[in-house]
Design a protein around this nucleic acid. Structure first.
Lengths: 139, 139
DNA sequence: ATCCTAGCTTAGACTTCGTCTAATGAAAGA
DNA sequence: TCTTTCATTAGACGAAGTCTAAGCTAGGAT
């Protein structure tokens, strides 16, 4: 049983087979999939699942705060179920693969007061970019 | 004369009236425009300018390393001509305003080796999020 | 100055990613 | 079990960006 599904119960979310499959697909992921990758994988278990339901469900999960929506390349969004722990992202410039990473301290402290332009600054996240092992060879 | 245009000369770039107008529009911007905002402003000086040329030119500027392509909202890309100085971005969660900011050190050093997953990590940028002075009041 | 050619520009078709619609289906409380 | 309300579906639609093929032009060669 997926941990994400358990959390969703607490939101009084109507549990349907489609939503269960989508949530479990997301939760089992070690990388952050795009909506279409989630559709593709979920369809292995439920072939009649529609694209609209995947998009609807992902948007609801984001609204509930149970999943993070990421966008680094300006193309497709990626979904990150790991919302509990503060983390940052490492992205492959070759294939767009996205991994969670952890840093040694909080980057918020790195922005001096005179660089804050009167903003109430609440969050800071770091995007690391490079090439993954596969794309390093492929070059 | 735009500083960006001067730099482009050094890349042996064929200078056309279209490219000049686009580069000057970009370079004069104090905020980071989307491609369509650039098209709109450039068309005030050159009404027959085509959308394809704006996109082509922006992509070439990015490839030449003279302009940064930004994407924070997963919608349209924004273009940042301020490529000379290492900087990061501060974004208002209320209105989406984007400002350049500077930090005290390089975040690349903050990613431990055992968090690099075999990637060749080349760059790191920080996105700070908060509320700008106007949006703090408006709440 | 003019010619030539590589490479630029253009309109509009096309692609990709995502949203919307309206009809049908099903979860879960009464 | 019934009923209501919400979820699901296929496909149309929309926004952002890319591609294509035809014509045009910047700038070096003569």
């Amino acid at each position: 049983m997926s941990d994400l599904v358990t959390r969703l119960r607490r939101h009084q979310w109507r549990m349907t087979p489609q939503r269960r499959v989508i949530a479990e697909t997301l939760d089992g992921a070690h990388v952050h999939y795009t909506a279409d990758e989630i559709l593709e994988r979920a369809c292995e278990r439920m072939p009649e699942l529609s694209r609209a339901t995947v998009y609807n469900t992902l948007n609801e999960l984001v609204a509930l705060g149970e999943v993070l929506e990421l966008n680094f390349d300006g193309r497709s969004k990626r979904y990150d179920p790991n919302v509990d722990h503060e983390h940052h992202h490492l992205i492959c410039d070759g294939c767009g693969a996205t991994k969670d990473v952890h840093t040694v301290a909080d980057p918020l402290d790195w922005l001096p007061g005179d660089e804050r332009h009167g903003f109430a600054v609440a969050k800071a996240s770091i995007t690391f970019r490079g090439r993954c092992p596969e794309c390093r060879e492929a070059r």
